[in-house]
Design a protein around this nucleic acid. Sequence first.
DNA 1: TTCATTTCTTGCCATTTGGCAAGCGCTGCG
DNA 2: CGCAGCGCTTGCCAAATGGCAAGAAATGAA
Lengths: 193, 193
Amino acid sequence: MENEKLIQYFISTNLISPIKAEEIAGHFTKKNIAKNQFQLKEGKICNEYLFLEDGFMRAFAYDIEGNDVTTGFYYNNHIAFEVSSYFNRTVSKENIQALTDCTGWYITYEQLNNLFHSIPDFREFGRSVLVKGFAALKTRMLSTITETAEERYSSLLKSNPEIFQHAPLKYIASYLGITDTSLSRIRKEFSKK
Amino acid sequence: MENEKLIQYFISTNLISPIKAEEIAGHFTKKNIAKNQFQLKEGKICNEYLFLEDGFMRAFAYDIEGNDVTTGFYYNNHIAFEVSSYFNRTVSKENIQALTDCTGWYITYEQLNNLFHSIPDFREFGRSVLVKGFAALKTRMLSTITETAEERYSSLLKSNPEIFQHAPLKYIASYLGITDTSLSRIRKEFSKK
DNA sequence: TTCATTTCTTGCCATTTGGCAAGCGCTGCG
DNA sequence: CGCAGCGCTTGCCAAATGGCAAGAAATGAA
């Protein structure tokens, strides 16, 4: 099957049986996103719950002064979507853009809800995706508040080295909450050690 | 009915009908928490999804150096619980403590799941609570990264003035990601304007 | 009331991070 | 090939925030 990776992803969560995984995956639609294309544009309603099979994406928003701020990175075997816009059916403040050519599988809001209603295990899966994302963001929030920029850099380098292979420094810098100038200096200091 | 506020809370979300609201509320248990008592202690599994009817609570964790860091405030008509510990059934890294005498209504994990299975509208409600919390945290994360401490202080004062009536400065400071010394100075500057 | 504790403020100085501009190297395109 | 643009680094200095310690003010318990 072409959607083997999607099926394996469901199974790997231990929330969905192989049989159900295949059934669920059958409702997803394949999609290619070329490098630099937008998977989501601010001002639109996010309507795709996208499993990213291959490639690398970045989510970003603009602050009050118009600066581009990276809010997240997505890559292999992650769900790339904007939670609030997708579930509340509201206009997105964020953009999601492909930094490399990507392939993935998506499901619309309506389809997702139908599956949630008919397959309890898939509801559990959906909740798990939300809860994990929430917990990861809480961890990031705490580290932003309690750690120095250098510590945050070091942690990200250890936990998500893929990011450094695909994203230019300025994107990583705003994700870490610092300027690209500072990140450059931090890298210099860090490499001395 | 004694649980009138809980029922009204469900109705106010526009996700649950008055009849269903009453049915759902019937599964919640009343609870009083005295000032300074812990609603959740780190190391334990959070097992109460608590609707706070009255009172004021603070969630906090300790960073690597052992500093107490405020991760959230809860008060009237909010759900006070630790998402990750409650849904993943894992040990909590956070504490939740009453800063005033509190009253609320809680439901255990098992009860909640039973209700989720039997009442689709309550599932929607549960998802909405998660999604709103997630979105609020994303907003907070963005403001922590893009705004100055003074701007964050000003925003919090405008959006959640209740906090300043109940929590000492040091708790608010760590929530804002600064020291209490800095917050004191920021207040001084701010009051001049 | 009295005393101890906690909360908040303030001064002095250190550290972290930012702003700006220049420069270098690489890449892609005409 | 030549040039424009981007990504990254670096120097200089400024701004934001922190650390520590002292003291004033408020609070709470006996």
